[in-house]
């Protein structure tokens, strides 16, 4: 793994973007977007996560393995949440009382 040293300027720009995103997500929460408000909130959070991971955690210079590890973790989190939602979102869907 060769050493990449990013410039301070890069970090300042990323940091500024993170602050702006924080202000944006706070502001947008006061706007009525209906069911999309949670989508927007999570989308902004994901963008912030990507900024932190790619730049501050140096994922953009990292090996394929590191990216795979990260992707795997998010996939497994997805499995946990989606498979459980399969249950909770379909309760009563087939007309069996209580199930």
């Amino acid at each position: 793994m060769s050493e990449h040293i990013d410039s301070v300027k890069t970090y300042v720009l990323v940091f500024a973007a993170l602050i702006c995103a924080t202000l944006a997500t706070t502001a947008v929460a006061f706007v009525d977007l209906g069911p999309f408000s949670v989508v927007v909130a999570l989308a902004i959070a994901v963008c912030k996560m990507l900024l932190v991971a790619l730049f501050f955690m140096h994922v953009r210079h990292s090996t394929k393995l590191t990216r795979l590890v990260l992707l795997g973790a998010l996939m497994w989190l997805g499995i946990l949440i989606l498979m459980t939602l399969t249950d909770f979102s379909t309760r009563g869907a087939l007309g069996v009382p209580g199930r």
Binding site: S37, A41, A45, V52
Partner: peptide, 17 residues
Amino acid sequence: DIIWIFLFPLLYLIDRH
């Protein structure tokens, strides 16, 4: 930090309007 990036909108910002 990333954990907090998610906790903040999920806990503080539900339907503020």
